[in-house]
Amino acid sequence: MAVRIGRYTLKLDRPTSIIGYAAAGSRKEAKGPLGKFFDYIDEDSTFGEKTWEKAESTLQKCVINKAIKKAGVTPGDIDVLLAGDLLNQCIGSTYGARQMGIPYVGLYGACSTMAESLLLAALFTDCGLASRCVAATSSHFCSAERQFRFPLEYGGQRTPTAQWTVTGAGACVTALQSGAPYVREVTIGTIEDYGICDINNMGAAMAPAAYATLLHYFNDTGTRPEDFDLILTGDLGMIGTQLLHQLMDEAKLSITANHKDCGLLIYDRLEQDVHAGGSGCGCAASVLCAYILPQLQEGLLKDVLFLATGAMMSPTSVQQGESIPGIAHLLHLSHTDGKEDNIC
């Protein structure tokens, strides 16, 4: 069973493996540098549905079914589905899960939902509360724009700090089984608010949360950034990345050498006109499932710190002049289950 190490981190005791994973996206994601790694691409961003909300539900349902299939199990074998999205009342996930018949826990962690759902799935699995769990999340550019910003056809200019919500989804199936990739430790994030109020600069709002969580993890485990092949943040984008590097440099824990951000990986930032990069729950989820987990499985990457960041505001709080609180949940994903460390 998972044990607490330090104030913030939980160490998983048993080999908790991600036995199946899948990523889905649409046309813009397919045209990006990682397009060829996606399991499912539909060039039509309506996914055959009449509304953008239904499109997102279909996208999430599709990616969950794909991950379950890749894990070699059936929906009936899944004990818990942990899922969330950006839409009000998480309807992207609930409507997607309608016909699945799997016990469902709805989550809201904004763009941190992939890390939030995956860390809970790993804990459920490690503690024996479920033999197999699914963690999933999605975002859709069109459903997010209409909820948080402007109508799609509104003629406005985006600011240089704005990020592009990814139309994408990712899902992972966890089980107590041998086979990489494994979840080794998880750190639950704290809410951090450094007083950034600009809704068009989410990267700056979220970077302090990523900084705090990284600091907590390194303190709790006694590790350093150079102990990992890759430190992968969710969707800090160009500005958030720059600020996180500054914060980490100041704490004498530079991550410049091995840090990457999903928001900067998923699109060709300049070529695809996405300003500061990609964002949304689907950004971290699809990059993790399409690009990072296969490398961990094959051993091309050995140890990865995956932390998805979320900006926990709502249009109401922003209109009321509130600053934007951020959160970042972290998972240490590894090619090995860590048992050999103890033997040595």
């Binding site: 200019q157 700090t161 950034i196 600069n201 700056a204 600020l243 500054q246 914060l247």
Partner: peptide
């Protein structure tokens, strides 16, 4: 870094709009 220092660092990190083209 205090919140105030961070806000000032964030302000400096923001790229300018392309005014020479936009206007």
């Amino acid at each position: 870094m205090t919140a105030k220092e961070y806000q000032s660092a964030a302000g400096k990190a923001i790229p300018h709009s392309k005014a020479a083209r936009n206007i």
